[in-house]
């Protein structure tokens, strides 16, 4: 960060306002793009490579995580040339299991830390949670912001907490989950995005997946526009991760269209865009196989892990 030019921290109360209807109209325009043939295959491959294959259940076990890691590395052996997913996303206690299982694959391990999903824990506990995950080998930390404090208007608290977690991350990349489903308005989504980016987030992420609504096109668009403004202001690229509720290949392609037309080509890589999803991969695989064979597919032919 020391090469960054000095930048005053803005007054987040003055974050740009968002018109909900306008955002929804724009978001729906992306869904009107028709992605066919070569563009579809290329797009679906890209989607696969951007997936953070996720399991975040209280009942998760080492066995379950190992299976998921195998799936991450062998999405569909019958279909040659498929990319790997970007990362596996697990709770901190399972990081080591995942790390070992993925050794040599190039697939990252992301851990949800900071008293995920509610974030209702003292800051010291959150920092310890983060450090633990990093020590276990996590490449990426997905933290949650304190929504209660945010809605109370205590933006300084939210900012400082993110900055401290960022420090605790060390080399690990920090994704900041806004939990947009609890923020109520798009104005708040924009404001929380601005806070997270200025406080040091490498990625901003919509949702934990535990609250409905999770990721939506309009919410993601608001966050992308925040990233774009931040990029133009600072020259620093921030990644984006919608998570939860993206289960279908077609919807994932709509997201890709949105990234392409909002952020341009530089963001069209797993380095800057991720999908937090569990069942999306299989739907993408089905669509890819359909493109190849011409036949509509059944889930029975795609492994569930």
């Amino acid at each position: 960060m020391n090469t960054m030019p000095t930048m005053t921290i803005p007054n987040f109360s003055l974050s740009p306002r968002i018109d909900q209807v306008g955002i929804e109209e724009r978001a729906s325009r992306f869904t009107k793009r028709s992605i066919k043939t070569a563009a579809k295959i290329e797009g679906l491959n890209l989607v696969l490579s951007m997936i953070d294959l996720t399991t975040l259940e209280g009942k998760d076990t080492a066995g379950k995580v190992k299976q998921l890691c195998y799936k991450a590395m062998h999405l569909n052996d019958a279909y040659e040339g498929l990319p790997n997913v970007a990362a596996i996303c697990v709770y901190p206690t399972l990081v080591k299991v995942a790390k070992n299982a993925l050794k040599g694959s190039g697939i990252n391990v992301a851990a949800v830390a900071t008293a995920f999903p509610s974030g209702q824990a003292p800051k010291s506990v959150k920092i310890a949670d983060t450090k633990f995950a990093v020590r276990q080998g996590a490449d990426e930390i997905d933290m949650v912001i304190s929504r209660g404090k945010f809605l109370n208007g205590d933006y300084n608290f939210v900012f400082d907490e993110i900055a401290e977690i960022k420090e605790a991350c060390g080399e690990a990349h920090l994704k900041v989950i806004l939990e947009t489903g609890e923020l109520n308005t798009l104005d708040n989504v924009r404001r929380a995005s601005d806070i997270a980016m200025h406080a040091g987030a490498d990625f901003i992420k919509t949702s934990t997946g535990k609250i409905s609504p999770a990721a939506t096109l309009p919410v993601t668009l608001v966050m992308l526009e925040a990233i774009r403004d931040y990029y133009y202001k600072t020259g620093k690229m921030i990644g984006m991760k919608p998570a939860g509720g993206i289960a279908k290949a077609k919807l994932a392609l709509h997201y890709l269209v949105m990234v392409k037309e909002t952020m341009g080509d530089a963001w069209m890589t797993p380095a800057w865009f991720r999908f937090g999803a569990s069942s999306l991969a299989n739907d993408v695989l089905m669509q890819l196989t359909k493109q190849k064979t011409g036949n509509y597919q059944s889930l029975n032919y795609f492994s569930l892990d």
Binding site: M4, A39, G43, G235, K236, M237, G264, D265
Partner: peptide
Amino acid sequence: KANKTNSSNGSMVDISLKFDEGWSYS
């Protein structure tokens, strides 16, 4: 690669978005 872009931003060269390369629609 992207990190490099980040760390070199002190010079603030060419902050712009490109839309005409990479993935395009058939």
